[in-house]
Simulated scan of single mutants.
Amino acid sequence: MSGNHKFSRMPSRKVLAVTAAGACVAALAATLSVHATTASAAEISLPPTHAGFDYQIGGAYTPPSGVEVVTRDHTASPVDGLYNICYVNAFQAQPGAESEWGSNLLLHDGDGEVVYDDAWGEAMLDITTEAKRESIAAKVGTWIDDCAANGFQAVEPDNYDTFTRADGLIDAADAEAFIQLLADRAHSADLAIAQKNTAELAGDREANGLDFAVVEECGRYDECGDFTDAFGDDVIVVEYSASGLKKACAGWGDELSIVRRDEDVTTPGSGSYVRKTC
């Protein structure tokens, strides 16, 4: 959970010197490639806009009446008949799961100590080199593939904004390079992919391959417009306070999917469960 809240290469001269027959074969292959890409893109669908939404990353339960879109953890099952978004913690290890990554893939400070997101007790993953990004993306990619195989329509990689809490050890370029790997993996699995929070990088959403946004507390922090500027109405808002919900609904209630949940995103009957809408 968040701490706050292909370019085609020009052919070489040698390639351009192919025979007419070879050129025909190449043209046919290119045509087939374009059709394949188009077909793949056609499999990717975005969440309906301004729809009833429920955020269930703290535990799955029967969605309330009127819900059309739901986010659940990648270990949970999607809901038949709804648009399902699959949550994965992509930039940080789950609490207590450091050993599942290996020390070389955890971020270390100058003293060799593992760097944590203190708000959630999650070790940050080291995405500062291409090799490490590829290794981490390979593991997260297995979760993304599972999301697709289980019937989800989209994936929500959390903690894109880890770099803002990493004391300069990770930068925005690292985060964007890594999210591009995840976007490629998601699209290859015919899943849409969400940008999670991180308003400062919303303007790069197309270059990063991101299809829609899931935003925590943009009402509270007056950031909803930053996301609609980049994503239009393809923005899902989660607020954690009555005042945040009020502001989000006042500004965007006729356009966006908006829900208030309790901060621990609990299930009904927990005692702290909250779910409200505009």
Score class of each variant (00 low, 15 high):
126 D>M: 02
129 T>R: 06
220 R>D: 11
160 Y>A: 07
273 Y>T: 05
159 N>G: 03
205 R>L: 06
183 A>L: 08
219 G>F: 07
156 E>G: 04
99 S>I: 01
148 A>N: 06
68 E>T: 12
89 N>Y: 07
44 I>Q: 01
169 L>I: 02
24 C>M: 07
178 F>S: 11
187 H>T: 10
205 R>S: 13
80 D>P: 08
5 H>S: 14
170 I>N: 06
67 V>T: 05
232 G>T: 01
151 G>E: 15
85 I>M: 15
273 Y>L: 09
231 F>H: 02
203 G>H: 07
87 Y>I: 06
261 R>G: 00
92 Q>N: 11
66 G>N: 08
43 E>K: 15
96 G>C: 14
88 V>S: 02
47 P>W: 02
229 D>N: 12
65 S>A: 15
102 G>M: 04
60 A>T: 15
56 Q>S: 13
90 A>N: 08
73 D>I: 01
159 N>H: 13
263 E>Y: 12
15 V>M: 14
230 A>Y: 07
113 E>I: 04
20 A>H: 03
244 G>K: 06
84 N>V: 00
50 H>L: 12
38 T>S: 12
90 A>E: 01
261 R>H: 04
86 C>G: 08
239 E>T: 02
113 E>M: 11
156 E>L: 11
63 P>C: 05
85 I>C: 14
226 D>H: 11
75 T>P: 00
221 Y>L: 08
216 E>A: 03
104 N>I: 06
115 V>E: 02
241 S>W: 04
139 K>C: 01
148 A>F: 05
217 E>I: 00
246 K>S: 15
24 C>G: 09
45 S>N: 09
253 G>Y: 12
222 D>Q: 10
19 T>N: 08
89 N>Q: 09
3 G>K: 03
153 Q>V: 00
101 W>G: 04
123 A>C: 07
183 A>W: 00
148 A>V: 08
202 A>G: 13
94 Q>N: 15
38 T>W: 09
108 H>V: 07
243 S>P: 00
63 P>T: 10
197 N>V: 05
278 C>T: 06
52 G>D: 04
148 A>Y: 02
250 A>W: 06
40 S>F: 00
272 S>A: 10
